[in-house]
């Protein structure tokens, strides 16, 4: 069972990763006896499962994902959100409107205007229908203050870190509230603009350097230096 790559190796589509009894993880496919990478990314192998962590790529919706959508259009009783994917998301207006209001008779732009951002959860997504999202629930709803930034959706797992280690570090050091949308939108709300700017700077650095090992150390160092100045 030869394996041709080691962890943190950079691979491109079609590269042969291993031969033999290995299991193909995400972004890897197996044909015959060989495992091939399907995207440009970094290799990770754990207990015989080989996966590639992509460096680039679009956001593919998954049920249960928290995403941040931006209102782009109205349907008769729903909002159409841009979730940075190849599908638009549908948000039912009844979830936004106060109870007992008839969505058909209301001016929907009074509650959510075009360009406004909403934190929501993917409720339904299958091959044949649009993405349906809901904004009812804990920590979901309209974004009213702070700043919204966009990073590459492929870098979100690195931004969160193992069991949220990275994002908790940033939250602790900057004192900001940070909501990560799996689709690459990130909402930062801090006590003052300076701490928001610092959080944004750190997130942008992660977006750029996510594929280089020792990321946590570099971020810790950066935050230390910032704290001193």
């Amino acid at each position: 069972m030869p394996i041709y790559v080691k962890d943190w190796d950079l691979v491109v589509p079609g590269e042969v990763l291993a031969e033999g009894d290995y299991v193909a993880g995400p972004y890897v496919y197996k044909e015959g006896n060989k495992l091939f990478a399907t995207t440009i990314g970094i290799v990770e192998s754990r207990r015989g499962v080989i996966r590639v962590v992509p460096l680039q790529g679009p956001y593919i919706p998954k049920v249960g994902d928290v995403v941040i959508g931006i209102v782009v259009d109205y349907l008769p009783t729903a909002y159409l959100l841009d979730i940075n994917s190849f599908y638009k998301a549908i948000l039912q207006a009844t979830e936004v409107l106060p109870p007992q209001k008839n969505a058909l008779a209301e001016d929907l732009s009074k509650y959510l205007d075009i360009g406004e951002a909403v934190v929501c959860k993917v409720m339904r997504f299958d091959k044949y229908s649009d993405v349906v999202v809901s904004c009812k629930g804990k920590e979901l709803g309209k974004v009213t203050e702070g700043r919204l930034i966009k990073v590459s959706p492929a870098k979100i797992p690195r931004l969160i870190g193992k069991k949220g280690s990275m994002i908790n570090l940033i939250k602790k050091e900057t004192g900001c509230k940070i909501v990560i949308g799996q689709n690459g939108f990130i909402w930062i709300k801090g006590k003052d603009p300076a701490s928001e700017a610092l959080a944004e700077k750190v997130i942008r650095k992660i977006d750029q350097e996510a594929h280089i090992s020792g990321l946590t150390q570099r971020i810790q160092l950066m935050l230390q230096l910032e704290r001193r100045s």
């Binding site: 589509p13 079609g14 496919y29 091939f36 399907t38 995207t39 440009i40 460096l55 680039q56 790529g57």
Partner: peptide, 11 residues
């Protein structure tokens, strides 16, 4: 195509 991160079987 590969630099756009689109999954491909091979180049």
């Amino acid at each position: 195509l590969a630099s756009a991160g689109i999954p491909m079987k091979d180049l």
